[in-house]
């Protein structure tokens, strides 16, 4: 089995005159948690959106599960995306659907029986500790609960790679820690690779196997949390203060 899940080479993206990514290289292995740190507007979210084909890069290659994302037709791209979980910054829950419907939504087209569907929804909600919220509407959920439901939704298809876009933004420190631990639990339980975009150092400390810091559109440095925390580069160390 191939160990490299995603391989990004020389990724470049500009929005008008704003060159957000200036040639990023990134590889992630099966079961690994990679935390990407960087200042706001440094292109972290653009990076993972390019990975799933939501944003088309100007240059560079994105290989996901051995396939070039931008050379696939719609059908193949959709099939590939079923292996990817994406937790959006705002959780992106469908407002018009209940929690149950939100979780059932990615399974459309799989033609599962209702009983099987119910069991899968219940067990996934249990794994994020929200089994009681099954019939609630997203508007009735707190920020932390929304993130949990969003995570549960990404887990419904048993993804092989999960992309987290600022999973702890807007949450209080306690809930942030809970979400970070949940990310770690998910990694252990589902053996999925994860890319976690954040500027929350505590989240990085809890979840990271490896870290990458983006500066000026390039991968400025890479290493473990401890390595970067004790880096000789003052700019890198400033993230951890």
């Amino acid at each position: 089995m191939e160990t490299i899940v995603a391989d990004i080479t020389n990724l470049k993206k500009a929005f008008g005159s704003n060159h957000v990514l200036k040639g990023i290289d990134l590889k992630i292995e099966r079961g690994e948690n990679l935390v990407v740190l960087g200042k706001s507007g440094s292109g972290k979210s653009v990076l993972i959106k390019c990975l799933v084909g939501l944003i088309e890069p100007d240059e560079g290659k994105v290989i996901l599960f051995g396939k070039n994302v931008f050379e696939l037709n719609d059908e193949d791209l959709n099939a590939l995306r079923k292996k990817v979980g994406f937790l959006f910054q705002s959780a992106a829950l469908y407002d018009s659907m209940s929690v149950r419907e939100n979780l059932e939504f990615p399974l459309r087209g799989l033609k599962l029986k209702q009983k099987e569907l119910d069991e899968r929804v219940a067990s996934t909600l249990k794994s994020v500790g929200l089994e009681d919220a099954i019939d609630q509407m997203p508007c009735g959920l707190s920020g932390g609960m929304r993130k949990r439901v969003g995570l549960a939704r990404t887990l419904m298809l048993n993804p092989e790679i999960i992309l987290y876009d600022e999973p702890t933004t807007g949450l209080d420190p306690t809930t942030s820690k809970e979400i970070s631990r949940l990310i770690l639990d998910v990694q252990k339980k589902y053996s999925a690779a994860s890319i976690i975009i954040t500027h929350d150092v505590e989240c990085a400390r809890i979840t990271a196997n490896r870290m990458m810091i983006i500066k000026d559109g390039t991968a400025y440095c890479e290493g473990t949390f401890e390595e970067l925390e004790t880096s000789k580069d003052e700019w890198v160390r400033s993230f951890f203060k």
């Binding site: 939501l54 719609d74 995306r81 079923k82 990817v84 910054q89 705002s90 992106a92 407002d95 939504f105």
Partner: peptide, 16 residues
């Protein structure tokens, strides 16, 4: 839906 990334979420789920 666009602002709150719900459309992107659908796309990422492999749903048109």
């Amino acid at each position: 839906m666009k602002v709150s990334e719900q459309i992107d979420a659908m796309e990422v789920s492999g749903i048109n």
